[in-house]
Nucleic acid binder design. Structure first.
Lengths: 232, 232
DNA sequence: GATTGTGAAGACGTTCACAGCA
DNA sequence: TGCTGTGAACGTCTTCACAATC
């Protein structure tokens, strides 16, 4: 299991979503062609993406929805509980905390943090908003797998550093800034500081999405058709 | 100007954000190396990305922040007003409507739509929530460049179709579903129906981000270092 | 007969080395 | 001399054709 395109992971997430929909409609079998149509990719792509992780189908028959779903859940690590803290309880943080669907996959919000004295102590979704200063001690006592960063852009870097210092391994960054891992000069080479080794940062930037959309509306010919049909 | 990688557009957005920060700090000159460090990419990449659109620097000197910023704003189409309608006024739609930063780039929310009778007529950010049935006539009378789709997943496809039927050219889809353009069979070939020709769909899916993050925490070796330092 | 799984070919994006210019 | 701009080399991802097998 080596060298899997990042894009393939995103597509696996899409396939999983589709399998859930099929299951909800009591459809028990599918095929690479069917999945491809629903996902807006080619059937080749579906088969190749799945092949990175194993053999989940039956030649001549296709895939059993329940089996493929179970396997993708396993591959994506969604058969376990993920404990999440949210940093920032402004409108965005609250929208995230209240967004349904996270709990479907064992993502559990275990704490909320902010720096604004006016909101510390308030209850959101059954959780008390705590001060950022208490993040570290919270993480020492409780298992925290991920931090969701929903603070203003100019606080995002510091908040990310606090998360990493506290020992959190994954950051989902909603702020429109590039999070910079701390590096140190060792033998003339820049390299990641110890606390940033093995930290994963994923970004969700809807302002960037707006801007990309504006660009592609102006330059539609540059857009690779998002949902190419007629596979094979 | 042909054949520009989609990823390059995303990076341009990042460069632009960095240039704004530099300008706010009264830094007037920069270089591909400096931009690269701040963006977490290589200097080669920066130069290549910019080269797709023109020559914005001076050899031996670097880039003038103000000039490069102006050019990127132009390239990305952000020197004009974009009129946006938001479909769905739940927590997510409200968070979007109230998120600061959109207005910085002339993205103007001109109307909000929903189907829930309880919210029709309410005021959000100075706009009255209207019923989806009135979307079409609204778009006929007012210029609408984009629709932001913030409805529950099972309504996303219908809402997208309504937007496209009304003549909206761009959709920023926040729902965790693949929007399917309508296709028709013509001479045995699937092809896009007329109303979907030239429609651009961009997705912002934070549930997918959560799942990717979970995967990469479990498989850190598969992650291409998000911020590779030491360029050149 | 149908559909998966996969090595090989091709397309695409990134990296590079260096030519071009201040 | 220093840094940009860019054709060419490289590597990665996608597409493909077909062998495997139910």
């Amino acid at each position: 299991m080596a060298d899997i395109p990042t894009a393939a992971i995103s597509r696996l997430v899409t396939y999983l979503r589709i399998l859930e929909q099929l299951e909800a409609q009591d459809i028990s079998r599918t095929s690479s062609t069917d999945l491809a149509e629903r996902a807006g990719v080619t059937a080749f792509q579906v088969r190749k993406d799945l092949a990175y992780f194993g053999r989940f189908g039956t030649r001549g028959m296709g895939y059993t929805v329940a089996i493929l779903k179970r396997e993708l859940v396993r591959v994506l690590g969604l058969n376990q509980t993920w404990n999440v803290v949210i940093i920032g309880t402004g409108r965005l943080g609250q929208a995230i905390a209240n967004y349904p669907g996270a709990s479907d996959y064992q993502f559990q919000y275990v704490a909320l943090f902010d720096v604004n004295p006016a909101v510390i102590g308030q209850q959101i979704r059954g959780l008390t908003v705590q001060h950022m200063n208490d993040l570290r001690s919270f993480v020492e006592v409780n298992r925290v797998d991920m931090g969701f960063l929903a603070v203003p852009p100019d606080h995002a870097q510091d908040a990310a550093q606090s998360l990493v210092d506290a020992g959190v391994r994954g950051i989902l960054n909603f702020a429109p800034v590039v999070i910079q891992p701390r590096t140190l000069e060792r033998a003339g080479q820049h390299e990641l500081s110890d606390e940033w080794r093995n930290v994963i940062v994923e970004n969700v930037d809807f302002l960037a999405g707006m801007k990309r959309l504006a660009f592609y509306i102006l330059n539609p010919h540059l857009k690779d058709a998002p949902n190419s049909e007629d596979q094979e």
